[in-house]
C-alpha cells in the first residue's frame, strides 16, 4: 500500500475490533455478536448479510453510536464513535422519516440537526432527480413506500455524511421498485462515494451494490466470510454468469452448506 500524506485518510473508515454484544433476555444473557472483526475502507460500500437475528441491526447501532453497551472497539476514521463530531447518516428500515414533517423538512432535517446551511439548489436537484419534485409539501403518510425511501435517501445525500448506515434499506419495496431504488442509490453514491455500511437480506442486492460482502452466521453472530466483490456497481454484470455464480455461492453459504 502506498503511503498517504494524510493520516486520517489512511485509516479505514470503520474499524471494528473484537466486538461482542450480549443482551439480557428473561434473566439470562444471550450473546448476539461474538468477537466481530471488520474493517470498511474509505469510500466503499460494505454489505452485511446473514440469517435473521444474527445481530446485523445490533452491529449497525453500535457503529452509529446508538449503543455503547458492548465489549471491543468501534472506530470511525481511527477515532471512537462520536455522533457529535462526526456526521453519521442512519437510515432505519422504516426510512426514519418524521411523520409530522413534510417532505422538504424531512429532507432538510439532517442538515438542520447538524446546524449546516441547507444548500437549496442541491436540495431541489436531489428532489428532482429522485422524482419528488412537487411532493415537497406532502407528509410521509401520503407517500408510497418507494417515495418515502427516496425522501430518506435525499436527506442522506443532502447532508453528505462521513458515514452512511442503512438497515435493510430496500427490503420493504417490491422487486421492481427495489431494483430502481438500487440504481438511484448507486447513481447518487457514485457522485460522492460516501462510505456505506448496509444490511440486506438479498444476495443480489449485496452483489450489485457492495465492494465488500460480509456473511454472518447466527447465534451467536459471527463473521463467517468476507467476500471482495468485483462486480459491485456493474449494471451490465448483473444477471451475468459470474454474478450468478457468486450469487449461488452466497446462497449456499447462507443456507449453511459447506463451501469449498
Amino acid at each position: 500500500m502506498k503511503p498517504e500524506p494524510n493520516m486520517s485518510s489512511r485509516e479505514p473508515a470503520i474499524r471494528i475490533n473484537d466486538l461482542t454484544v450480549t443482551y439480557e433476555e428473561a434473566h439470562h444473557l444471550v450473546k448476539v455478536l461474538d468477537h466481530i472483526d471488520l474493517t470498511v475502507e474509505q469510500g466503499q460500500i460494505c454489505a452485511l448479510i446473514g440469517p435473521s437475528g444474527c445481530g446485523k441491526s445490533t452491529l449497525l447501532r453500535a457503529v452509529a453510536g446508538l449503543t455503547h453497551d458492548y465489549e471491543g472497539t468501534v472506530a470511525i476514521n481511527g477515532e471512537p464513535v462520536d455522533p457529535h463530531r462526526l456526521s453519521i447518516g442512519f437510515m432505519p428500515q422504516n426510512y426514519g422519516l418524521l411523520p409530522w414533517k413534510n417532505v422538504r423538512d424531512n429532507v432538510e432535517l439532517a442538515c438542520r440537526i447538524k446546524k449546516q446551511p441547507v444548500a437549496q439548489e442541491k436540495r431541489d436537484r436531489l428532489l428532482n432527480d429522485l422524482g419528488l419534485a412537487g411532493f415537497e409539501q406532502r407528509y410521509p403518510r401520503e407517500l408510497s413506500g418507494g417515495q418515502q425511501q427516496r425522501v430518506g435517501l435525499a436527506r442522506e445525500f443532502l447532508l453528505e455524511p462521513d458515514l452512511l448506515l442503512m438497515d435493510e434499506p430496500f427490503s420493504a419495496l417490491d422487486a421492481i421498485t427495489r431494483e430502481e431504488m438500487q440504481n438511484i442509490f448507486l447513481r447518487l453514491w457514485q457522485e460522492n462515494s460516501v462510505t456505506t455500511l448496509l444490511v440486506t437480506h438479498y444476495v443480489e442486492e449485496a452483489l450489485y451494490l457492495a465492494q465488500t460482502i460480509v456473511v454472518f452466521s447466527a447465534s451467536p453472530g459471527q463473521v463467517r466470510r468476507v467476500i471482495v466483490n468485483p462486480l459491485a456497481g456493474d449494471r451490465a454484470a448483473r444477471g451475468g454468469q459470474q454474478f450468478q455464480q457468486l450469487a449461488n455461492q452466497l446462497h449456499d453459504m447462507l443456507r449453511g452448506e459447506v463451501e469449498h
Binding site: 447501532r61 462526526l86 437510515m91 422504516n94 418524521l98 409530522w100 432535517l109 448506515l165
Partner: peptide
C-alpha cells in the same frame, strides 16, 4: 425507539430531540 435513531446518530441535542420529535409527537 427507531424514531430517535436518525437524530441520535447525528448527535442531536436534547433540545433538538424535543423540538423535532417529542413536541410534535
Amino acid at each position: 425507539r427507531e424514531t430517535y435513531y436518525p437524530l441520535y446518530s447525528l448527535g442531536a441535542s436534547l433540545g433538538q430531540v424535543f423540538r423535532y420529535i417529542i413536541f410534535p409527537a
